[in-house]
Amino acid sequence: MANPEEAVDFEPEEDDLMDEDVDASSPRAPMPKLKSAITGGGGGSSASKKIKGRGFREETAEAERNARLSARFDSLDSEGGPGPERSIEGWIILVTGVNEEAHEDDLHNTFGEFGEIKNLHLNLDRRSGFVKGYALIEYENFEEAERAISEMDGNELLTQTIHVDWAFSKGPFRRRNVRRRSPRSHRSRSPRRRF
Protein backbone atom coordinates (compact mmCIF):
# COMPACT_ATOMS: atom_id res chain seq x y z
CA MET A 1 0.00 0.00 0.00
CA ALA A 2 2.82 2.37 0.76
CA ASN A 3 3.99 3.93 -2.43
CA PRO A 4 7.64 4.83 -2.06
CA GLU A 5 7.45 7.67 -4.55
CA GLU A 6 5.02 9.67 -2.53
CA ALA A 7 6.69 9.31 0.78
CA VAL A 8 6.43 13.01 1.44
CA ASP A 9 2.79 13.11 0.58
CA PHE A 10 -0.04 13.15 3.06
CA GLU A 11 -1.34 9.68 2.33
CA PRO A 12 1.37 7.59 3.96
CA GLU A 13 1.33 9.84 6.98
CA GLU A 14 -2.26 9.11 7.57
CA ASP A 15 -1.77 5.42 7.08
CA ASP A 16 0.91 5.73 9.59
CA LEU A 17 -1.38 7.19 12.15
CA MET A 18 -3.81 4.40 11.60
CA ASP A 19 -1.21 1.94 12.72
CA GLU A 20 -1.72 3.17 16.19
CA ASP A 21 -2.09 0.13 18.39
CA VAL A 22 -5.31 -0.94 20.05
CA ASP A 23 -7.36 0.93 17.55
CA ALA A 24 -7.78 -1.66 14.85
CA SER A 25 -11.54 -1.20 15.04
CA SER A 26 -11.44 2.54 14.62
CA PRO A 27 -12.33 3.69 11.13
CA ARG A 28 -10.73 7.07 11.52
CA ALA A 29 -7.69 7.49 13.61
CA PRO A 30 -5.90 10.38 11.86
CA MET A 31 -7.73 13.55 12.80
CA PRO A 32 -10.00 13.16 15.76
CA LYS A 33 -13.23 14.83 14.80
CA LEU A 34 -14.98 16.82 17.43
CA LYS A 35 -17.68 14.25 17.54
CA SER A 36 -15.45 11.38 18.40
CA ALA A 37 -13.64 13.50 20.89
CA ILE A 38 -16.71 14.25 22.90
CA THR A 39 -18.99 11.28 22.62
CA GLY A 40 -17.03 9.22 25.07
CA GLY A 41 -17.37 5.50 24.62
CA GLY A 42 -19.38 6.06 21.49
CA GLY A 43 -16.78 4.87 19.02
CA GLY A 44 -14.14 6.56 16.94
CA SER A 45 -10.82 7.17 18.57
CA SER A 46 -12.39 7.46 21.99
CA ALA A 47 -13.15 3.79 22.06
CA SER A 48 -9.69 2.99 23.35
CA LYS A 49 -9.51 5.83 25.82
CA LYS A 50 -9.79 5.68 29.54
CA ILE A 51 -12.84 7.72 30.33
CA LYS A 52 -13.80 9.29 33.62
CA GLY A 53 -16.49 11.64 34.88
CA ARG A 54 -20.19 12.20 35.29
CA GLY A 55 -20.36 14.09 32.03
CA PHE A 56 -20.40 10.79 30.16
CA ARG A 57 -23.62 9.78 31.80
CA GLU A 58 -25.85 12.66 30.79
CA GLU A 59 -27.45 12.51 27.42
CA THR A 60 -29.52 15.68 27.59
CA ALA A 61 -26.45 17.71 28.39
CA GLU A 62 -24.74 16.21 25.39
CA ALA A 63 -27.61 17.07 23.07
CA GLU A 64 -27.69 20.65 24.38
CA ARG A 65 -23.98 21.02 23.92
CA ASN A 66 -24.12 19.77 20.37
CA ALA A 67 -26.83 22.30 19.64
CA ARG A 68 -24.83 25.13 21.16
CA LEU A 69 -21.68 24.26 19.31
CA SER A 70 -23.29 23.75 15.95
CA ALA A 71 -24.24 27.42 15.83
CA ARG A 72 -22.36 29.82 13.61
CA PHE A 73 -19.24 31.38 15.06
CA ASP A 74 -17.82 34.66 13.78
CA SER A 75 -14.23 35.00 12.77
CA LEU A 76 -12.16 37.74 11.18
CA ASP A 77 -11.96 37.47 7.43
CA SER A 78 -9.20 35.08 6.70
CA GLU A 79 -7.76 33.67 3.53
CA GLY A 80 -7.33 30.33 5.19
CA GLY A 81 -4.29 28.21 4.60
CA PRO A 82 -1.02 28.28 6.51
CA GLY A 83 0.78 31.26 7.98
CA PRO A 84 0.12 33.72 10.76
CA GLU A 85 -3.21 35.47 11.02
CA ARG A 86 -3.53 39.19 11.60
CA SER A 87 -5.62 40.23 14.58
CA ILE A 88 -7.97 43.16 14.44
CA GLU A 89 -5.43 45.79 15.43
CA GLY A 90 -2.11 44.11 14.91
CA TRP A 91 -0.04 40.97 15.19
CA ILE A 92 0.06 38.84 18.32
CA ILE A 93 2.95 36.67 19.41
CA LEU A 94 3.13 34.14 22.21
CA VAL A 95 6.13 33.87 24.50
CA THR A 96 6.41 30.69 26.56
CA GLY A 97 8.90 29.55 29.17
CA VAL A 98 8.66 32.94 30.89
CA ASN A 99 10.25 33.00 34.31
CA GLU A 100 7.62 32.99 37.05
CA GLU A 101 9.22 36.02 38.62
CA ALA A 102 9.26 38.09 35.45
CA HIS A 103 7.76 41.57 35.49
CA GLU A 104 6.05 43.38 32.68
CA ASP A 105 9.07 45.68 32.51
CA ASP A 106 11.34 42.76 31.69
CA LEU A 107 9.22 41.91 28.68
CA HIS A 108 8.84 45.52 27.64
CA ASN A 109 12.58 45.99 27.75
CA THR A 110 13.32 42.89 25.73
CA PHE A 111 10.49 42.92 23.24
CA GLY A 112 10.19 46.68 22.93
CA GLU A 113 13.36 46.57 20.86
CA PHE A 114 11.51 45.21 17.88
CA GLY A 115 8.78 47.81 17.84
CA GLU A 116 6.27 49.54 20.02
CA ILE A 117 4.35 47.04 22.14
CA LYS A 118 0.67 47.84 21.72
CA ASN A 119 -0.49 45.33 24.27
CA LEU A 120 1.09 42.97 26.73
CA HIS A 121 -0.66 40.27 28.70
CA LEU A 122 1.48 38.66 31.36
CA ASN A 123 -1.03 36.52 33.18
CA LEU A 124 -0.59 35.16 36.65
CA ASP A 125 -1.09 31.73 38.11
CA ARG A 126 -4.25 32.08 40.14
CA ARG A 127 -3.06 29.79 42.84
CA SER A 128 0.50 30.98 43.38
CA GLY A 129 0.24 34.55 42.19
CA PHE A 130 3.42 34.12 40.16
CA VAL A 131 3.61 34.53 36.40
CA LYS A 132 1.88 31.61 34.71
CA GLY A 133 4.71 31.13 32.24
CA TYR A 134 3.49 32.78 29.06
CA ALA A 135 3.05 36.27 27.66
CA LEU A 136 1.03 37.58 24.74
CA ILE A 137 2.43 40.61 22.96
CA GLU A 138 0.84 42.75 20.29
CA TYR A 139 2.77 44.70 17.64
CA GLU A 140 1.21 46.91 15.06
CA ASN A 141 3.28 45.64 12.16
CA PHE A 142 3.97 42.22 10.82
CA GLU A 143 7.70 42.92 10.46
CA GLU A 144 8.08 43.86 14.12
CA ALA A 145 6.41 40.68 15.27
CA GLU A 146 8.36 38.60 12.82
CA ARG A 147 11.66 40.03 14.00
CA ALA A 148 10.74 39.46 17.63
CA ILE A 149 10.07 35.83 16.82
CA SER A 150 13.17 35.21 14.76
CA GLU A 151 15.50 36.97 17.19
CA MET A 152 14.04 35.84 20.48
CA ASP A 153 12.84 32.30 19.90
CA GLY A 154 15.18 29.94 21.74
CA ASN A 155 16.89 32.81 23.52
CA GLU A 156 17.26 33.34 27.22
CA LEU A 157 15.18 35.67 29.34
CA LEU A 158 15.86 35.82 33.07
CA THR A 159 17.87 32.58 32.98
CA GLN A 160 15.17 30.63 31.20
CA THR A 161 14.98 29.61 27.56
CA ILE A 162 11.93 31.16 25.99
CA HIS A 163 10.01 30.17 22.91
CA VAL A 164 8.42 32.78 20.72
CA ASP A 165 5.90 32.14 17.98
CA TRP A 166 2.82 33.57 16.33
CA ALA A 167 -0.35 33.16 18.34
CA PHE A 168 -2.89 32.93 15.54
CA SER A 169 -2.97 31.05 12.33
CA LYS A 170 -4.93 31.46 9.11
CA GLY A 171 -6.10 27.89 9.12
CA PRO A 172 -5.96 24.54 10.84
CA PHE A 173 -2.61 22.90 11.34
CA ARG A 174 -1.82 19.41 10.28
CA ARG A 175 -0.79 17.03 12.96
CA ARG A 176 1.95 15.61 10.82
CA ASN A 177 3.92 18.81 11.32
CA VAL A 178 3.83 18.28 15.00
CA ARG A 179 4.88 14.69 14.64
CA ARG A 180 7.85 15.47 12.48
CA ARG A 181 9.55 17.25 15.27
CA SER A 182 9.65 14.33 17.66
CA PRO A 183 10.24 11.14 15.78
CA ARG A 184 10.26 9.01 18.89
CA SER A 185 6.68 7.97 19.31
CA HIS A 186 5.39 4.47 19.74
CA ARG A 187 4.31 4.60 16.15
CA SER A 188 7.85 4.69 14.91
CA ARG A 189 7.88 0.97 14.36
CA SER A 190 6.10 1.65 11.10
CA PRO A 191 8.67 1.00 8.39
CA ARG A 192 7.02 3.39 5.94
CA ARG A 193 8.24 6.43 7.74
CA ARG A 194 11.75 6.03 6.58
CA PHE A 195 10.49 5.43 3.10
Binding site: F73, E85, L94, T96, D165, A167, F168, F173
Partner: peptide
Protein backbone atom coordinates in the same frame (compact mmCIF):
# COMPACT_ATOMS: atom_id res chain seq x y z
CA UNK B 1 -20.94 36.47 21.34
CA UNK B 2 -19.61 33.62 19.26
CA UNK B 3 -16.05 33.83 18.03
CA UNK B 4 -13.61 31.43 16.55
CA UNK B 5 -10.00 31.64 15.47
CA UNK B 6 -7.23 29.22 14.62
CA UNK B 7 -4.31 28.98 17.01
CA UNK B 8 -0.77 27.97 16.23
CA UNK B 9 0.55 24.68 17.60
CA UNK B 10 2.59 26.72 20.09
CA UNK B 11 -0.55 28.10 21.71
CA UNK B 12 -2.15 24.69 21.88
CA UNK B 13 1.00 23.32 23.41
CA UNK B 14 0.92 25.98 26.12
CA UNK B 15 -2.70 25.18 26.86
CA UNK B 16 -1.75 21.56 27.15
CA UNK B 17 1.10 22.41 29.48
CA UNK B 18 -1.24 24.30 31.76
Amino acid sequence: IRKEVFLTPSVLKECRRI
